[in-house]
Amino acid sequence: MADLKTRIAKRCAKEFKDGYVANLGIGLPTMVSSFLPEGVHITIQSENGFTGLEGSVERGDENVEIINAGGGYVKASPRVNYFDSATSFGIIRGGHVDATVLGAMQVDEQGNLANWIIPGKMYAGMGGAMDLVVGAKEVIITMLHQQFNKKTGVSKPKILKECNLPVTALGVVDLIITEMCVIKVTDEGLLLTELHHDFTVEDVVAATEAHLTVSPDLKPYDISE
């Protein structure tokens, strides 16, 4: 599982261009910053109030006045700038964040995203997720292709014809990166653009409920340095 997540993070890192301002969700998305291609330097926005997050700190080196959006202590880059929450979300909603990377519970053919609530099960709140996906120029979803149920041992598709969980936003997803493949959300629906060599197109189709168009220019899933 850890290997699969690393694979996804490595592939996602290739989407970043030098100078990008990015907001990375907690968990897998945060790993992306460890795999940036050589010469690509990004500025990470932390929605609790700064630009210039540089990674986690060792125990004992914490500055208690520098937390990330998950409440963890982090390091700040020399070009850090701190601001209040209205400015932070102004930067997010105003289109000044080039890309946001988030996990998802469900994504559908229209690029609708559900990643904040499971009625009756999970009640955490949307936090900054709704603003991020509406405001960022590019919304990249990184996730395992299917939902694995530990109790039943059955995997269920997360890429659907239509989200059945309450959505986080409508039509916002640009790119989906899973351990199997890369899928682009286009006006004509979902386009399979890259395939990992462990899988066939049939494997991906079987693990996906949504209709997939296979790109005539289908490429191998590339995570080489």
Binding site: S46, G49, F50, N63, E65, I66, A76, D84, S85, A86
Partner: peptide, 11 residues
């Protein structure tokens, strides 16, 4: 407010 303690204080 120092660093990331600003958040909602200025609002």
């Amino acid at each position: 407010c120092n660093k990331a303690t600003k958040n909602y204080n200025y609002l």
